[in-house]
Amino acid sequence: MTWEEMSDFFFISTTGRPIYNASNDLNRLHQKYKLDPVTSQTARRVFETATKTMTDSEKSMVADYLTHSTATADRHYRMKLSRNVVVASKLLSKLAGDSSNESAEEGTSRGARAAARDTGSNRQMDVQTALALLLQTHPVTLDGDMPDRAARCQVSETFQRQLYERWLKAQMRLRVQHVLSHFGRREPTESGVSSWIKKQGWKNNIPSAASILKDWKPTGPVDTVVDSSHIKTLITTQKWRGLVVTDIAGKGKGVCTSRPFQSGEVVCDYHGQVVRAKEGTRIHHSLDENETGYMFFYRNKKNKQMCIDAHSPECLCHPGRQTFGRLINHSRKRANVKPRLYVVDIDGEEQDVILFFAENNIKVGKELKFDYGVERKSFRGEGLDLDWL
């Protein structure tokens, strides 16, 4: 076949030969890339539907331009004039949202609105297009109000109900994520979640505290844990939930769980007075033998040797309350929590805090243990650089 003969074909195969049935190739293209099938009939119906606001002559010109039959085209004299071909092409560009006479925003809105009105085989695609159009003027926000019926109908009368439901679902997902990010890596109580949600002032589309807790999992990277106001509150109040102090055979006191903890969840902290390592060593040597196991030596973010002194059963800042971290026993092979150092801004003052994370899912009634690392210069673990006595 000569190049002159091949010029009548729009698609050329990989071997350079002409393709006689472009529709089959388009179908294979859609299947390969998992695209919704869009036929010429569908495109024609969308554009013809969008011409409702045009004059009769413009409607006729668009219909003639979109004709799919050579025999049919021959009956329409308008398309025999090159000028009319150009005019009809511009009209279609205008409907598709590419108009030189309108702003880009107006053109996009008109094209998206036309697609949203289609009720044919591509219904799902049209709902998504209509939703995208609605979000241009009514974006989903935490505190935003649902677009009223008039606003939804202006986009698409056919899909206004679907737009209503999808907008609410999108806002619900946003609000649930907002709640989860507040509590981060520490599971809250249902009453705590309910109380915090009420403070947001949401009047409708309010997430359920029970449903949030049902699917709760630790969220966010461990580096941002102390950004959570919930965690900061627990550090300052020492009201860690789900832990009990109990007697452990052969070990004395220990800490057990009274609720399950998920892997990666913050369990508690090692609470005490932060002093220089030299002062911690002096205190350590001055204590009785039964008090010497409550000193946590570490290297701070400025590479200085420090110590958390927790030898006293009750700290000065929390009289009458026994803290948990100091009573967690040692185990190298069966450790189920690991420590990590953070610098926390509390009341405008930076403080070193050691938080314990669950290394795996911990069931109710299990004793908490972590590796003291007594025989090593540093505690090896993810992001940890803690020196032990």
Rank of each mutant, 00 (worst) to 15 (best):
F11P: 13
I12Y: 14
R17G: 06
L26G: 03
H30K: 08
K34F: 06
V38R: 01
Q41S: 15
F47V: 11
A50L: 05
K52V: 10
K59M: 09
D64Y: 12
S69T: 08
H76W: 15
V87C: 02
S89P: 00
K90M: 06
L95W: 01
S99A: 11
A104T: 05
G107D: 00
G107P: 00
D118P: 02
G120H: 01
S121G: 02
R123H: 10
A150M: 09
C153Y: 04
S156Q: 00
L163D: 00
R166A: 07
W167Q: 01
L168P: 00
Q171K: 15
F183D: 01
P188S: 14
E190C: 13
K203V: 13
S211N: 14
T219E: 11
V222I: 13
V225R: 00
T233V: 12
S258C: 05
V266A: 06
H271W: 08
A277C: 09
N290G: 12
F297I: 03
F297A: 04
I308K: 05
I308D: 02
H311D: 12
S312Q: 09
R321V: 14
N336M: 11
L341D: 07
L341W: 13
E350G: 11
F356W: 05
K369M: 04
D371K: 03
V374F: 15
E375N: 13
G383F: 15
L386M: 15
